[in-house]
Amino acid sequence: MKSNARELTISILKFNPHNSNSRPTMVDYKIKERPGMSLFLALSTIREKLDHDLAFDFVCRAGICGSCGMLVNGKPQLACKTQTKDYKNGKITLMPMPAFEIIKDLSVDTGKWMNGMSKRVGSWIHTSESTDIGKVERRIDPEVAYDTFELDRCIECGICVASCATKIMRPDFVGAVGLNRVVRFSIDPYDERTDSDFYEVIGDDNGIFGCMSLMGCEDHCPKDIPLQHKIAYMRRKMVDQRNT
């Protein structure tokens, strides 16, 4: 098995914006493929054996934490869920996701961007009620809870933002991730915000009306969240708000 292992050529954009001498450069790394190899294993091998200076981000390596979004042959996806065997000619090009501040090489600052987005859309329950945690919890229709969960599954990996043409034209576009958050809280019975409140947050071209429905977000979402359907649903509600 080992002797038959093919050689992979992984080309990676290296760039350190904190070093004024650094220029973006593509560097080729050649490693032996192993059975069941993911880009997590491939990149770890490269950093361990070939280039200690290579920067990238992994945490869970199981597609759950959303740390490792990058462009793989031009498509934004989670590196940990990317199997090298799916690249028939053994050549893989890796670049950092656009739209985020670059830290170094493949590492981008999604955390900072997502915190900003969360604060902008108020990504938490807005309520005037206080809960007595000793008492039986409020009843929620099981289907509504499931619908909320369906959208709550977003891991804020940033892939929808990196796939978005609007984001390139409008740097302040809130992204599918932000719009999804709004829809998620709008259907959550614990949240008291009304459509008019949400209109104040996303009722402009940097919000719901900026989306051009190119569907890059939904095509690439690693959690298969029905983003376009939910954005369309919210857009109809926001149009009603604009017309009132």
Partner: peptide
Amino acid sequence: PKAIRELASWGVPWTRIK
């Protein structure tokens, strides 16, 4: 039990009984 009820009020979408 208090923790889970607090989290429900913070928006954790616990699976509910039908």
